[in-house]
Design a protein around this nucleic acid. Structure first.
Lengths: 322, 322
DNA sequence: TCCCTTATAGTCAAATGGATTATAACTGGA
DNA sequence: TCCAGTTATAATCCATTTGACTATAAGGGA
């Protein structure tokens, strides 16, 4: 490989780059019975994580090690989410910089859950306003909307009031707008800015009477989850990643329910089947499932060949526009 | 903010997280006269970069500082690309880990280029196989295809041969497949694996007689550029980021040429105009441009209001499917 | 004036995608 | 045994999108 000293390298040498601690944080997802779940530790308020250390061969292997050690759960599919600098940590004698690298991991929920600390929680416990499978959740209209309007109107400048109202309307689909399931991060940032989640505690209202009811997380872990949900909701539309969450064989309805769980909205059944079949993402196993409650459904398995054929080129799933 | 010690934090304390050097690397893009350019330093083979240090307020501000110092160029739009662990650097007494955080930055090319070290180069000098604006470039059919087939056939296992041929065919659109402009990274990885670029020097053929003619870069900088091109080609289709590269006012054809420069392929003119106008991305300035060579064209400017309206919701640009 | 260039408007057909209806195959209870 | 309820599977309809094409307008230069 190229190892010559270049102009850039010389510039670098002039500055003693400060050393930094690096943390790896995992948002691990599985779907069970139509509930999308996040893997947590502690009081179900913490994501698996740990420092990147010398013994780790790579960032990903370091992450796998920490998750397996803390939850007993091995990881399959992994993808990087975002790297951010934490606010300064004050070390013993000097200031200590730290950065965190967050990852999204997809897996199947194992029965033998392993470690006692391991805990799967529906991610809608942390984001009750994100589940629109039964229509707009009550908390959005009854709590979030009035609070956000109140927050918008609490600022003096008229232009800023209008801008805040517009942001809220677009993110949540107020005023006859469509709800866009991919805006999970923007919605979280709004409720955070408006001081409606615990971790936003920006000095006001210590009684928390005005919080939106939802389960909180340590530090910025809930923001990482929001980032991951948004990424996943976007990605299922053009990459066949759903299958990382499915068992070996499944019915088309099970597949649809899984996509719906992730997207947080319902999908038109015939259209879903049409697209899946058109793209030849799956093949029949020849068997049928009996426990559907109605007519037995054919069982399918993922055609792994498509990973060679189209992994690159792009798939699509029909998550209706509203 | 939440600063309580959690289960995860305790686990962390048990392991003295090793300290790491962090580098910030920028892929800075501008488009001039229909040529998409990358900002380089050194022998036009190095991206602006520098270590993340204590005096930097944030990762992004650190990056801005280094780019401005090394090239004299201020940055506008910035977005994170990817974080990766470099192979171990051997320090004075102990092994030293390093990670790099790469960014994509969009800007307008300033006339007063500033620093002498600053150099804009067409990115197609580094990726001649990526410019399909005049049809498939000769280098693809004359050089790349035979070399890739040779590389595929050089492996013993028949299944692996088939897989390599298929990867090449899909990435480059051989065998009547469509060329997909977003596969820039996959194509680079193929030519790298096949040993067709200088930096891949995997021990074979030191004479380099079999290399594909193209400008090389230091270390893995060319891979970062490939990642950035891919990201940008994808992003222009659903976010109005092109306007970061445009002057204050412009004609619709100039806008189209810029998109074509980025996408590396031509676009149908009437359809392009239709989509731009439908989405109300721009508004007329009322003036016209005289130097079009033909009938004078109306001048437009970007409607910054759309950043409030749809930044979130998604735009679309018509980059034809082939 | 003719011919070249580019701008701008309008048309057409194929493909996509959302919604609906119809029929099939099972379970469980009256 | 038959009927109601449930889910599976197939087929159709129609509005919108989108790719490709044609026609006309408005400038410059020979």
């Amino acid at each position: 490989m190229d190892d010559q000293e270049t102009g850039a390298s010389k510039d670098r040498a002039a500055v003693t780059g400060d050393e930094v601690k690096v943390d790896l944080i995992a948002f691990v997802v599985a779907v069970n019975d139509g509930e999308p779940c996040v893997l947590t530790i502690g009081q179900a308020d913490t994501l698996p994580s740990g420092p990147f250390a010398l013994e780790h061969r790579s960032l990903q292997s370091g992450l796998r090690g920490w998750v397996e050690q803390q939850t007993g759960h091995p990881l399959g599919y992994i993808e990087q989410l975002y790297t951010f600098a934490d606010r300064d940590r004050v070390g013993a004698e000097r200031r200590q910089r730290a950065i965190s690298i967050s990852y999204l991991a997809l897996t199947r929920m194992e029965k033998a859950a392993g470690s006692p600390k391991c805990g799967w929680r529906s991610w809608y416990e942390y984001f009750p306003w994100e589940d629109h499978r039964s229509g707009t959740p009550p908390v959005v209209l009854d709590v979030l909307r009035p609070r956000l309007i109140e927050w918008a109107d609490s600022v003096g400048d008229a232009a800023m009031r209008r801008e805040r109202r517009q942001r809220a309307a677009m993110a949540f689909g107020f005023d006859d707008r469509h709800w866009n399931e991919e805006l999970t991060l923007q919605r979280y940032e709004l409720v955070y800015e408006a001081g409606l989640v615990q971790e936003a505690g920006n000095g006001r209202d210590p009684t928390r009477a005005s919080l939106v009811p939802s389960k909180s997380m340590v530090a910025d872990h809930r923001r990482i989850v929001a980032t991951g949900i948004a990424r996943l909701r976007s990605k299922i539309k053009y990459r066949p990643v759903v299958f990382e969450l499915m068992p070996q064989s499944f019915t088309l309805l099970q597949l649809q329910r899984t996509v719906e769980a992730l997207a947080g909205r319902l999908i038109n059944k015939p259209n879903f089947r049409r697209l899946i079949e058109q793209q030849e993402l799956v093949e029949e196993t020849g068997e049928t499932s009996i426990d559907t409650g109605g007519r037995p459904a054919r069982l399918y398995r993922f055609r792994h060949a498509v990973l060679d054929e189209t992994a690159i080129v792009g798939t699509k799933l029909p998550v209706a526009r509203g």
